[in-house]
Amino acid sequence: MGAILFSALTLALAVFALTQRRLLWGVIGVGAHSLALAGVYLFLAAPDVALTQAAIGFGLVTFIYLLALRRTGKLTVVAVETPPLLHQEGQRVAGLEWEILSRFGRHLHQDVEVLWVTRAEIPRLLRAGEADIGAGGFLPQSEDGVLLSRPLVPTRIVTVRYAPGPLGAVAGDRGEDHLPADRATYEDHRELASALGAGEVGGAVTDLLHVRQWILNGEIPPVVITDHEETSFRLAVAPGEEDVHQALDAFLAKLEANGELAQLVRRYVG
């Protein structure tokens, strides 16, 4: 009877651990699973194995996971690579948003880690609790379901067109809302630009910053621009992280008040 009880507990803990969304809970669940498993070994008349499993599986393995996660006391930022705002420069990350995020991390005494993802993945990762902040030219869309910070850099949504054909946009981006029925969506701005260059689409709906970047890089010629609406780049915060959201807004308000934000915008965006 006791054996059946412990077996059920072991299985339930394993299922609990592997179906969690936060890694921390998964690690704790696997540790508890190891401890229950040691109980099962006792019922199977293996006291040596039970002692070893309890000491190593519960003690050492859980500790080493917790140390390796570096997640307790760490801000995880999921971002799209967006050259003047947030991008990889060799081994390090650079850009305007990186200046703000690294200062914010030092302000909170936390390490900041940037993971590169696609735009459509950001709200999903934030809602799942896999990340704390979404960045990299984040333009809010109505159905995102995440908390938003104060505006960082103002910009406009525009349509560029220099050939007949369908219009393209980045999946999940603000520009997707303004697409006509004849549409094509791409994973990120680099793919969109190469599709424009290859003539797959005749134009694109995106923000002014990216258009300027393309023209500067010579990827597309200067073209007709239609204006849609005013908006601004913001940072997204995971829905459960009210504290981080308030701290971030207070930090940004401080940067705005002493003029550092305007200075950074001048330096990076011009």
Binding site: A17, L18, L23, G26, V30, H33, G57, V61
Partner: peptide, 12 residues
């Protein structure tokens, strides 16, 4: 890391 946790359960 989730893969490693799965490996852990499989090994047990």
């Amino acid at each position: 890391i989730w893969k490693l946790l799965g490996l852990n359960v499989a090994a047990s």
